[in-house]
Amino acid sequence: MSEAVVAKRYAEALFQLGTEKSTLDNLKEEASVLQEVFARNKKILTFLTHPRVKSDKKNQIITEVFQGFSGDMVNTMKLLVERNRVELLPSIVDHFIDLSNEAKGISEATVYSVQALSGDEILKLEQTFAKRFQKKAIKLINKVDPSIIGGIKLRIGNTIYDGSISGKLKRIERSIVTANK
């Protein structure tokens, strides 16, 4: 069975547990923290997946480092240690957050701009695109990308809305090339 399928199954089980216990919002917050922890500190995942470190030591570290987390999240991490599946944790967390957002009608998107957008600009974009996609809300993550020259580019799922100057220039270039053939 592929690792993606296994990660989805663990995420679905955690989602189902959170739904049954009405702790989905809390678990989603913890999952977001885990996502950030693994993105910023690669050493923790290396430690948890290292074959020479005993499971007892890994579980002890999980208990100490994540002591403010719910029992369900900590037990999920310990279960992954026990089954030698800790390397799937970042993928499980990503799938879990997607499931939680989908259940609440929320989508996550990335907006690329030349400079960081203000909170007000992000809020207006979130409202505009939430209506367009018929979602309750859209959570935007702003990434600065000077290569777009100006305007914005928004990626939501597999869809990209390109309102950047560099995108417009590329479209003009393509139309000129196809017109000259």
Results as ranks from 00 to 15, higher is better:
Gly18Leu: 02
Thr128Phe: 06
Thr19Ser: 11
Phe129Thr: 05
Lys153Ala: 10
Arg171Glu: 14
Ala109Pro: 14
Ile92Gln: 00
Lys8Arg: 13
Ala4Val: 15
Val144Asn: 02
Lys42Arg: 10
Ala116Glu: 04
Ile165His: 08
Phe66Ala: 01
Asp94Glu: 15
Ala11Lys: 00
His50Gln: 07
Lys131Thr: 15
Gly68Glu: 11
Lys43Ile: 02
Glu173Lys: 13
Ala103Thr: 04
Ile152Asn: 08
Thr46Asn: 04
Leu24Ala: 06
Ser32Val: 01
Lys168Ala: 11
Pro51Ser: 06
Ser32Met: 09
Ile148Gln: 08
Ser2Arg: 13
Leu34Ala: 00
Phe133Ser: 11
Pro90Ile: 09
Lys57Glu: 06
Thr23Leu: 15
Ala116Asp: 01
Asn75Asp: 13
Ser91Trp: 05
Gln35Trp: 05
Leu17Met: 02
Val177Pro: 07
Val5Lys: 14
Val5Tyr: 14
Glu102Trp: 03
Ser118Ala: 10
Lys43Gln: 09
Leu24Tyr: 08
Ile160Gly: 01
Thr49His: 03
Leu117Ser: 09
Lys181Thr: 13
Phe96His: 04
Leu45His: 00
Ser147Tyr: 04
Leu89Glu: 00
Lys124Met: 10
Ala11Asp: 00
Val53Ala: 05
Asn84Ala: 04
Gly167Ala: 04
Lys131Leu: 15
Leu123Val: 02
Asp72Met: 12
Ile106Gly: 05
Met77Glu: 09
Leu169His: 08
Lys78Ile: 10
Val81Tyr: 05
Thr178Gln: 10
Thr49Cys: 07
Ser118His: 09
Glu20Cys: 01
Gln134Leu: 08
Gly163Lys: 12
Lys136Tyr: 12
Leu89Met: 06
Leu123Glu: 11
Lys28Ser: 07
Arg40Ala: 04
Tyr161Cys: 12
Ile106Arg: 02
Glu3Cys: 04
Val114Met: 12
Lys135Ile: 06
Asn75Glu: 11
Thr110Asn: 03
Ile61Val: 14
Ile172Lys: 07
Gly151Thr: 08
Leu99His: 04
Asn101Val: 07
Ala7Pro: 07
Ile61Met: 09
Ile106Ala: 08
Glu126Asp: 09
Lys143Gln: 09
Ile156Tyr: 13
Lys131Cys: 03
Glu102Leu: 11
Tyr161Glu: 04
Leu117Glu: 06
Leu17Asn: 00
Ile92Pro: 00
Ile165Asp: 08
Ala116Met: 02
Ser118Asp: 12
Glu82Lys: 12
Val53Asn: 01
Arg132Glu: 08
Pro146Ser: 12
Arg40Gly: 12
Ala31Lys: 10
Lys42Phe: 02
Phe47Trp: 03
Glu108Tyr: 11
Gln16Cys: 02
Phe15Pro: 06
Gly157Ile: 10
Asp25Thr: 08
Tyr112Phe: 15
Val37Lys: 00
Val6Cys: 03
Ser55Tyr: 11
Leu140Phe: 15
Val5Glu: 15
Val33Pro: 01
Asn26Cys: 05
Ala179Val: 03
Val53Lys: 01
Ser107Ala: 12
Pro51Val: 03
Glu30Gln: 05
Ser175Gln: 13
Gln35Asn: 14
Leu48Lys: 01
Lys57Ser: 07
